[in-house]
Amino acid sequence: MRRHTISILVENRFGVLSRVSGLFSGRGYNIESLTVAETNDPQISRMTIVTRGEERVIEQIDKQLNKLIDVIKVMDVTSEDHVERELVLVKINAEEKNREEILRMAEIFRGKVVDVSPKSYTVEITGSESKIQGFLEMVRPLGIQEMSRGGKVAISRGAKLLAPK
């Protein structure tokens, strides 16, 4: 079962998210992550869904998504040359002895400290999933108080566009 990243353009309308997520839950497809936001055209939203399944299931997902009236276009970016990024905000224990280490890790992973308090540093990291995984592993021993991780966003490289006809 391969993991697939699927980009979907939808009409930016009331209830569209529930139609898409309901399709996944109703038909037993899994969702590892889902992001959605308006595109440069405010009438259109873009969703990125990471899912897992046999080829046959992925083909069904693609067809079923296309069947939804509000779905404009679907692309399985996994089959294209593409870029994927995630973002995570991690609140890490910042005791006296840890602080240097947190800053060093943030620097190595090209992160940013976005909030500081006497007990914690909050670090922002963007990048591929493996990079984020790597960072989390490095800071876990220091004590992660809280984290908020966004779903994946993806875009194909070069001339290939996901755009309405």
């Binding site: 009331f14 209830g15 529930s18 139609r19 309901g22 109703g26 009236i69 509000d70």
Partner: peptide, 16 residues
């Protein structure tokens, strides 16, 4: 009713 019938309709509208 839109939420309840979402999985058993081809499409639905709430007229606003």
């Amino acid at each position: 009713i839109i939420g309840m019938t979402r999985p058993c309709t081809k499409h639905s509208y709430l007229v606003r």
